[in-house]
């Protein structure tokens, strides 16, 4: 069970989804390295780290107590996560790198990257609404 099983996703191919879940080359079961788990950790890790950094770390300065700084934070970090997710997914596109019964292309990987981007953004926003309450300088950002 993975977080990506439970959430709404951009409609990238289900085959990519199975590949990301680690479907073995013979197609029997998900026994290979799970990119989903890795990306889930990246999404959670980067979101929490960036929001912690913004509200309690290096960005916890009056200089950054403005909505543009916050927006920058919740766009750049998801962008990095999106690019990383895309890279991890696209590495499975060449034949031989995935189960031959799965059919997906780079556009699927791009949609997966967008999904990761979107959810990191949402997660950053959600985390912001909680973490901001305990911040010294950024407690009023974004609202």
């Amino acid at each position: 069970m993975n977080i990506f099983d439970s959430i709404i996703r951009f409609s990238y191919s289900r085959d990519l989804l199975e590949h990301l879940k680690g479907l073995s080359l013979n197609g029997e079961a998900c026994t290979s390295q799970s990119v989903y788990q890795m990306v889930t950790l990246i999404v959670l890790g980067f979101s929490i780290a960036s929001i912690l950094n913004y509200y309690f770390g290096l960005f916890n300065r009056p200089l950054f107590s403005r909505i543009f700084s916050w927006l920058f934070n919740v766009v750049v970090v998801p962008f990095i996560v999106g690019i990383t997710s895309y890279s991890l997914a696209v590495s499975g596109v060449p034949s031989g790198a995935h189960c031959s019964y799965l059919h997906f292309f780079k556009t699927d990987c791009l949609l997966f990257g967008l999904t990761a981007f979107a959810y990191t953004t949402v997660l950053c926003i959600v985390l912001s609404t909680t973490f901001k309450l305990f911040s010294v300088n950024n407690k009023k950002v974004p609202f």
């Binding site: 300065r61 009056p62 200089l63 107590s65 010294v136 300088n137 407690k139």
Partner: peptide
Amino acid sequence: SVNGIEYFRKILNK
């Protein structure tokens, strides 16, 4: 550490 006006604002926030 932050300095100058940033420090002032930080202590105000705190």
